[in-house]
């Protein structure tokens, strides 16, 4: 139940995306604030805040999975280093944008029948015993995250936010390809 304070914090949080340089087409000197793009005025119960909280949860879960994989299979640490760096960057950006008490959207804008990855507070994700299997599972998880991210980018109200979400989804696709290639080496 968002309070006026948390709403302000939320809007300020998403505005931080703009402060971090997350803005759309500015070559024409347009407004850099994501709050002013697409919709003339942003309603107080901004669905993008809940969307950002959801993406943050999923990115954190992916980061936890990558870290757990490297911990369980130390020889894979190099193979997953890029994924670790990418998802850490995503989590850091979204953490700046999302207020601590924002509630993730679920499941309405994302009709995914699959259960979400285990949230980090409930312990480390399970990692397969065989390194090759663990790597393949990680590649599949990246692929799923990319698909979810593309749907989130489509759903975002703010154009600049959609741009960043689509970029994060593309990053997950890159990692899926790269990790799968590592598995074939």
């Amino acid at each position: 139940m968002p309070t006026p304070v948390s709403r302000r914090a939320a809007l300020g949080g998403l505005a931080a995306l703009g402060a971090a340089g997350v803005s759309g087409c500015t070559s024409d000197g347009g407004d850099r604030s994501p709050l002013r793009t697409g919709t003339p005025s942003r309603p107080p119960d901004d669905p993008d805040v809940a969307l950002a909280a959801t993406v943050l949860r999923d990115e954190q879960a992916m980061l936890d999975r990558v870290v757990a994989t490297a911990h369980r299979h130390p020889r894979l640490a190099g193979a997953v280093a890029g994924a670790r760096a990418a998802h850490r960057a995503h989590v850091e950006l979204l953490t700046r944008a999302v207020p601590p008490d924002a509630v993730p959207v679920r499941p309405s804008p994302r009709p995914s029948p699959r259960p979400s990855p285990q949230p980090s507070p409930q312990g480390a994700p399970r990692v397969p015993d065989a390194a090759a299997v663990a790597l393949a599972a990680l590649a599949r998880a990246e692929d799923r995250l990319a698909g979810v991210g593309r749907r989130s980018a489509l759903a975002a109200r703010s154009g600049p936010f959609a741009r960043v979400l689509a970029s994060m989804a593309a990053a997950a696709s890159q990692q899926a390809v790269r990790i799968a290639a590592e598995g074939r080496r």
Binding site: H90, S167, Q174
Partner: peptide
Amino acid sequence: GSPTAFPGVEEL
């Protein structure tokens, strides 16, 4: 090319 954290978003 190498994977990046924010493909297509150069300022990040």
